[in-house]
Design a protein around this nucleic acid. Structure first.
Lengths: 177, 177
DNA sequence: ACCTGAACACCGTTCAAGT
DNA sequence: ACCTGAACACCGTTCAAGT
């Protein structure tokens, strides 16, 4: 594990402990037992560090290589993975909302998603629409969830998430042909 | 117009010009021709100023008092209003994602939304599910849009937004028992 | 009621220098 | 390769004091 990876790992731990607003380069340096200026050997700017964190979460949330079940089950597990990856760190969803260029993991996820929709019988247009709509939903739901539903039990949030997902899947199904 | 409102208005203008990350109390003070410490007479903290900005945008995006058309048309115009209000300021959607407690405008919007769904024949459960799903979608779509679709022409983004909305509305319709 | 002046404890970042 | 030390231009916020 490179020093760069150690910095990245520490940053993710710190994010989970203190949240996005309190994630500062100075605190991160302190946690690593190092001066703030030392970080700039590994990441040229805080923005690039945040991008690496985004990529890490996106990769963690990417769809499985060997999926099973029908396409609706695959959508459920892929969307569930995305949400899970963002929930794994405090403010994870809000962090994901700050990136500008989608990284390799985000693009791979998008491709996998559209592939599932296409093989289920959707046209290229419908597949892309479906994926974009699902992505917006998952992103929006999880941001809302992390910001304002800390009081709601996890099981209830899971149920709400799946219900909304089913609503959209129903819409996709009804749009075939 | 109270001085407080003038400060709020200046903050919204500044947000639109420089974006959320560069919206600092010091820059805001400069724009008002005043020292930073003077702001604290009107807002006890930057967080409370941001909350007031959120409430302003939420109110601007609230549904019209006299709606017309069938329920799908009403959903379209209400969701469109929400998106429009967030698009009115740079990073508007990301700002909306930072609030913790929903203000009066957000709650009124939510109530109006569920009322439309209920009067269309949805059960209380389905109505609430529909509103939460639509809200997550609009939020997620608009964040994505402001962060990463500045190159895509407005007309195309509008079309994408409406298509996703229709997909969800189709799902809601199909869920009417 | 509204603002200034001065201060405090922070930020991200650069750069020469050390090992 | 990795880090320190010192510095720079910033932050949000408090508080006594002015008008």
């Amino acid at each position: 594990m490179s020093r760069r990876d150690e910095v990245l790992e520490a940053a993710l731990e710190l994010l989970d402990e203190v949240g996005l607003d309190a994630l500062t380069t100075r605190r991160l340096a302190e946690r690593l037992g190092v001066r703030p200026s030392a970080l700039y050997r590994h990441f040229a700017s805080k923005r690039l560090l945040l991008d690496a964190m985004v990529e890490h979460i996106a990769a963690r949330g990417a769809a499985p290589a060997a999926p099973h079940g029908d396409w609706t089950a695959q959508i459920h597990s892929a969307a569930g993975n995305m949400r899970e990856a963002m929930l794994a760190y405090r403010d994870g969803a809000r962090l994901m909302a700050t990136f500008v260029e989608p990284g390799p993991a985000a693009q791979a996820s998008w491709n996998w998603f559209t592939g599932v929709a296409r093989s289920a019988g959707a046209s290229r247009e419908l597949a892309e629409l479906a994926v974009d709509t699902l992505t917006s939903y998952v992103q929006g739901f999880t941001i809302e969830e992390q910001a304002r539903k800390s009081g709601v039990p996890r099981a209830r949030r899971d149920k709400e998430f799946r219900a909304g997902l089913d609503l959209i899947i129903t819409g996709i199904k009804a749009s075939f042909s």
